[in-house]
Design a binder for these strands. Sequence first.
DNA 1: AATGAGCATATTGTCAGACAATCTGTCAAT
DNA 2: ATTGACAGATTGTCTGACAATATGCTCATT
Lengths: 236, 236
Amino acid sequence: MKRADSDLNVAREATSLRLLVEKRLRTAIGDGTFKPGQRLIERELCEQTGVGRTSIREALRQLEAEGLVDTVPHRGPVVSTITADEAEQLYELRAMLEGFAGRECARKRDPQILARLRKQFEIMGQVARQDDRSDLLAAKTEFYAAMLEGCGNVFVQRFLNMLLNRVTLLRMTSMTQKNRIDHSLKEIETILVAIETGDVDGAERACVQHIHNAAAIAVAALRKNEATAANESKIR
Amino acid sequence: MKRADSDLNVAREATSLRLLVEKRLRTAIGDGTFKPGQRLIERELCEQTGVGRTSIREALRQLEAEGLVDTVPHRGPVVSTITADEAEQLYELRAMLEGFAGRECARKRDPQILARLRKQFEIMGQVARQDDRSDLLAAKTEFYAAMLEGCGNVFVQRFLNMLLNRVTLLRMTSMTQKNRIDHSLKEIETILVAIETGDVDGAERACVQHIHNAAAIAVAALRKNEATAANESKIR
DNA sequence: AATGAGCATATTGTCAGACAATCTGTCAAT
DNA sequence: ATTGACAGATTGTCTGACAATATGCTCATT
């Protein structure tokens, strides 16, 4: 990631069909159009998107590498599922990486980043009471994005993005609980303040704590699901 | 990762052409057959491997997702290069992840893992004096692999593998320096002992330290390279 | 000599069609 | 209920084709 002195970057709008397909599929998986465990059949995707198998398949390879789909040989790709154990591991890693990001943001205190963080935080406060939580989610996403950029480590950035993509597979969780929103906002405020005041340890701790809390809820919900699913399969 | 009670697993030898190609390309990049910055031309790859464009392209997409190649639109893939800054970031993340792996190994102390670690360490001691360093490298790789498995977090495992793949792009470094080998062995011993004695903090610290040392050398070498390269381009 | 226009070539991006290999479910036979 | 065979569905892979784009070269112009 090089940066020209004066920012007249023409960021190479790398637009190719397969990238569009990739993005399209990613969001389709993210927003639940394709549910975890669902098979993705090439021919159907071709029809739905109107592009050839080549592009579809290449896009799928990319998603596969990111762990968003699992490809079973001679059976094709299915949207990844995630077990409670894996989710626990995912959050564990995410806590570590996001802790790092928070720490680095607090250390660098890049004014641009600080401004973005605060702006998104304020938006969150404004839209928290809405029934429709999509605005809140968007603001939160933006908040994280700013923090990622602020950490200045492209690898952390990339990996965290991959993790976040997979977290969206567990959408039902964290935010569904009503008063969790208030808690969540408080935690985010703690993060923000720590970053703004340059409290590196505090920022890291706050991030880790925030993820841990989210993880606890998500994992518990997953475990419950798995338990009932196991029972049902017993009955059958 | 499910495990049958008695191990008669037929671990689905998922062998498809594109996976073979993928592996082949990965090692070709790793062992320097394809040098950083080199273009990879589809048709040439087809001829060299004897497979069709389809499989080649899909394999390339996978490598692209792993960051081993950069694909420039309408120009095709080139073997990734890495700047000194990026290398620094890479090592920073690697230190964090490997520190975590070390800590977890020390906490769990799975006998199987411990045995593997020690075995590889002893092999290292035996082959350290050879001129040909490939045996040493192999043992080291195995040591890391064992540590990764031991950490019990599939995501950490996966990400670290990706990072390690990219580190091999910087092969010239760390090990080239003669007495660095001795230092390195000592550091690894420190790691091993800490893990064996269950000293979680010590294990983490030792891992981080080990990577930091390797990083220092690698990054310095890279910076030097970049400086001379910059000069040469000035002359020209 | 340096600049710029325009053309030729190389290579990727994408498609369609084809066929073998493999998986899955069904149905008959035991 | 278990087994075995068959048929249909889907992937894995190849081939050939063509448009879109990037790069390098030639040549005229200044």
